[in-house]
């Protein structure tokens, strides 16, 4: 276990878990906010949405502090809450679009940009077309740089399943980008 995660675990000693301690909760927020905010910022298109999801995650962390069983590092536990919050957000959004009352049409060809260079904003548009679980595995591994062992812990799967999921996600992402007319020649 790394020094960082040992330090994080110290903040959740039984005394602090059973009795709400504002300082330890605040420290937990400060130590993890950057990772959680950047996870959401890569998932949604605005700061406000990412901020809302970050707050929602930490409120859930606060409400469930007493249920934290210390089987994993607090960092992994908080990430898991964030990933579930994120997946649900994406699903709710997609469900609303399928029901047909939101303005975005998932099947429209609005995103087709012929002979375009691969930029991060195009990439983020393409990532949104993957399933929510594939989006998460791509964000956790490629953007956040987490090892597959950690990705598997967070997503409650085996390391092998996380690798297979990532492999499919990256291949799907390449197909989506090709359908959008992205060219790799200038890379």
């Amino acid at each position: 276990m790394s020094k960082g995660s040992e330090k994080e675990k110290d903040n959740l000693k039984p005394d602090n878990v059973r009795q709400y301690n504002a300082d330890s909760f605040n420290r937990l927020v400060l130590e993890n906010q950057e990772k959680i905010y950047s996870l959401f910022r890569r998932m949604v298109s605005s700061h406000d949405e990412a901020d809302d999801l970050t707050q929602e995650t930490f409120i859930k962390v606060y409400k469930n502090l007493s249920k934290f069983r210390r089987e994993s590092a607090p960092f992994t536990w908080i990430y898991r809450i964030a990933v579930n919050t994120g997946i649900n957000y994406l699903r709710r959004q997609k469900a609303r679009q399928y029901i047909g009352l939101d303005s975005v049409d998932l099947k429209s060809g609005d995103d087709v940009i012929y002979d375009s260079e691969l930029t991060n904003s195009l990439l983020q548009k393409a990532i949104k077309k993957l399933s929510s679980k594939q989006q998460m595995v791509i964000i956790l591994r490629s953007y956040q740089g987490l090892p597959f062992k950690e990705v598997a812990n967070i997503m409650d799967s085996t390391e092998n399943a996380a690798k297979v999921n990532f492999s499919h996600a990256l291949k799907n992402l390449k197909s989506v980008l090709e359908n959008m007319g992205v060219s790799y020649e200038s890379m």
């Binding site: 905010y37 691969l118 953007y143």
Partner: peptide, 23 residues
């Protein structure tokens, strides 16, 4: 490789006071 290189280069911009504001 081109796709992953773009992702690895990406940096999320955050206000230095974001953590304190969040708390």
């Amino acid at each position: 490789s081109a796709i992953t290189a773009v992702m690895e280069r990406d940096v999320v911009e955050m206000s230095p006071s974001y953590g304190a504001e969040l708390v």
